[in-house]
């Protein structure tokens, strides 16, 4: 699946959720499923500033694609991170650069998230995009 198809899949997945309660339940479930980052990678260097919970991103390149790992101490944040990973991990930098990241808006997640959390998500995305730009 390419980056657009993955995002469409996520949008479809969220479209069947009835209310915010179900949305959060789903995010929590996704958060639980996210692989934890080992403690040695939960460093200050990997930390994303501006988030109300701790967020760590570990980025690298593997066979010409982005290798992305992420973690947070908050479960809902982990859920959002797992979605970002689904979209971006293993994707070529060019594909990320050339595509629009629309799933946050189309799932309603960007309006559902509190302003501080959506600012935090913006910081996360900006950090990833910065890395991707340097590695295309």
């Amino acid at each position: 699946m390419d980056i657009v198809e993955i995002q469409n899949e996520i949008v479809a997945e969220f479209s069947v959720l009835d209310d915010w309660f179900d949305v959060y339940e789903h995010l929590i479930e996704l958060g639980r499923g996210l692989d934890a980052l080992s403690p040695e990678h939960r460093t200050e260097d990997n930390a994303i500033p501006g988030c109300q919970s701790n967020v760590w991103l570990r980025m690298g390149m593997e066979n010409g694609t982005l290798k992305l790992e992420a973690d947070s101490d908050a479960l809902i944040t982990r859920g959002i991170l797992s979605l970002l990973l689904r979209v971006m991990d293993g994707t070529r930098p060019e594909e990320i650069m050339d595509s629009e990241l629309f799933f946050l808006d189309e799932t309603g997640l960007s309006t559902n998230l509190s302003p501080s959390r959506s600012d935090g998500v913006k910081n996360i995305i900006n950090t990833i995009m910065g890395f991707v730009r340097n590695h295309k």
Partner: peptide, 13 residues
């Protein structure tokens, strides 16, 4: 076992 930020987010809703 529940992060304060997660809890606050749900209470807000």
């Amino acid at each position: 076992g529940i992060h304060h930020y997660d809890a606050g987010q749900i209470l807000d809703k």
